[in-house]
Design a binder for these strands. Structure first.
Length: 282
DNA sequence: ATTCTTGTTGCATC
DNA sequence: AGATGCAACAAGAA
């Protein structure tokens, strides 16, 4: 599930732990979610550490403690939640709870992830680790510009636009449905080679990327609720779904390695490019 | 039973 | 050399 807005939602789920000191820790160091993430370091450092701050950037989260940084990526099926409990009561954790922090004064902060595509990591010390500070600039910040967008598209000029929008090193936080939403609003075909976006459409595309991020955060970052009815999101998985703008049918097909939904009447592939792609198949 | 999945990575190939 | 595409990872839902 988790894309930009949902990550922001899940970050807040551990808010009840802010300012509190971790007592016991339940940690499965052999779980795949710890791959390369220094589970042993976390197991040693987390008990007794105070949770100072939580941060989200794209699909990545960081929890800053007084002894180091805990990184959380939710993958496909990860989730964070908090549970309340009377002091001294140890709550049961399900089989997929690979990390549980029990604040000294009660409750539990749980990370669970059945599919284990998610990722946990620990870095000791006060300095922001490379896995946090090395991320691409936020799409809602000043460093994301029509120029930087153009650079990303140039860099992957022959890849389908859909695939490029999913690249986290350029578009942190964009996931499958946000990419489809952006392309739909921008009236661009998902299979259009990124380098073939007309220069005159760059500003609009940039504005739409920002808009979808802002809208998603506003609508779903607070309560993980549903998207507004007029979004493509609400129509894209329904068989027989129709485009809210044209009323025409939606198509669903794998593009750029991911299931993609688009409105053919609105998002057309220029004939020249369609012909080229047909040639390359033969 | 089978096929689907809102993510990332490593590796083969171009 | 750099870009691209695909399989793999794993489990639950439809």
């Amino acid at each position: 599930m988790p894309e930009l807005a949902e990550v922001e939602f899940y970050r807040k789920q551990w808010n009840p732990g802010l300012g509190r000191t971790v007592g016991r820790v339940r940690l499965n160091a052999r779980a795949r979610v710890w791959r390369g993430g220094d589970a042993d370091g976390a197991a040693a450092a987390l008990p007794g550490a105070k949770l100072l701050e939580s941060l989200a950037h794209g699909k990545q989260m960081a929890f800053r403690l007084d002894s180091g940084w805990l990184g959380v990526h939710l993958g496909m099926s990860g989730a964070l939640r908090a549970e309340a409990s009377p002091e001294g009561v140890v709550l049961a954790a399900g089989p997929h709870a690979h990390l549980v922090l029990y604040p000294e004064d009660g409750g539990a902060l749980v990370f669970e992830d059945p599919r284990m595509f998610g990722r946990l990591r620990w870095t000791a010390g006060p300095a922001a680790p490379e896995w946090w500070s090395g991320q691409a600039p936020s799409l809602t910040g000043p460093e994301f510009t029509p120029q930087s967008l153009a650079g990303a598209l140039r860099r992957h000029a022959r890849a389908p636009l859909k695939a490029v929008l999913l690249r986290q090193e350029h578009f942190p936080g964009i996931g499958n449905w946000m990419a489809d939403e952006i392309l739909w609003r921008a009236a661009l075909h998902p299979a259009l080679p990124a380098g073939a976006v007309p220069p005159r459409k760059l500003r609009a595309l940039h504005a739409i990327v920002v808009e979808v991020c802002r809208d998603a955060l506003a609508e779903m970052g607070q309560h993980n609720g549903d998207a507004p009815e007029h979004w493509l999101f609400n129509h894209r998985w329904r068989d027989g779904g129709r485009c809210p703008k044209t009323g025409g049918p939606l198509r669903r097909e794998e593009i750029g390695g991911r299931t993609t939904c688009w409105s053919p009447r609105r998002q057309r592939l220029p004939r020249m490019i369609a012909a080229n792609q047909a040639n390359q198949l033969s």
